[in-house]
Design a protein around this nucleic acid. Structure first.
Lengths: 144, 144
DNA sequence: GGCAGTCGTAACAGTGAAGGTTGCAACCGG
DNA sequence: CCGGTTGCAACCTTCACTGTTACGACTGCC
């Protein structure tokens, strides 16, 4: 499926900011996060911009500018992040409308839609069970 | 995420062949299926080729050639189809290795990997609960 | 007020997966 | 031998995302 790394990078950024703030710093810069994630600061700013629209982080401009958490990590779940950065559905329908004159072509989309919705609900439920605090704890628990 | 329609198209093709064979026909051609799915016959042949490698369908060449089911629809699940046509994982890691000198960069991949594996197991379980016979029944039950 | 550092965002090239298309060899029943 | 279909390679197009550059906007500090 060649899935996106957007959710992974967003979780990375949030864990990084959370850890950094836990060490007493006020704000984190996109430059610092990009170095840790081994990517470009603009990519981080774009992603964090989406998280800001979702109310997960805040940004400050000017001198001493940077990013900070808008809520505690333990009150954020991966579902919040997922919904902020992944707009589309997990599974897609046909690119072009199937032949509505054919019984299968006509009935396949509602049939698959209903199955896919059930699966997406399950995935959302799983994502909602993991807080970013859980993620950060797992990160710090990784063997050296 | 801009997901693939591969699973959808593969299920469409299988349901079509199953219905067609249930009407007494021997084999279905990629041309017929492509017309129903409103796509190109080569796309269908590529997909069915993957399903053949997975043992779900068979093909015959020469005159009167075409595709037939290798098993009953009720013995195939969407998981069988999914594994045949979707090689990659649902969620991806970073494209480039994160900074291993950073605590977060070092621990983020094992942490996310473990979470993602749990979710994929759940998705697989959900897909395994739906047979292609279920899909065909839902297709035929769609309002006119 | 000016400077320096960072965000905000637009614009564009590069990448990779998937779909769409064409062409043709291989196969085989009649 | 013919006609219809699969098998498969080659190529183009499309699309989303990433990576990069550029530059204006903002603001604490001097």
């Amino acid at each position: 499926m060649s899935a996106n790394s957007r959710l992974t990078i967003a979780a990375h950024a949030l864990a990084w900011i959370g850890l950094y703030q836990g060490q007493g710093h006020e704000v984190a810069t996109s430059e610092q996060i990009a170095t840790s994630a081994n990517t470009n600061p603009v990519v981080i700013r774009r992603l964090l911009g989406e998280l800001r629209r979702a109310g997960l982080v805040e940004s400050r401009r000017g001198v001493g500018a940077g990013w900070s958490l808008a809520r505690e990590l333990e009150s954020m779940t991966l579902l919040d992040v997922y919904e902020a950065v992944e707009p589309g559905p997990l599974f897609a329908m046909h690119r072009t409308t199937p032949d509505q004159g054919c019984v299968v072509g006509h009935g396949i989309q509602p049939a698959m839609q209903s199955i896919y919705e059930g699966i997406e609900d399950t995935v959302r439920h799983e994502l909602a069970r993991v807080t970013l605090e859980n993620v950060l704890r797992d990160v710090l628990a990784a063997p050296r």
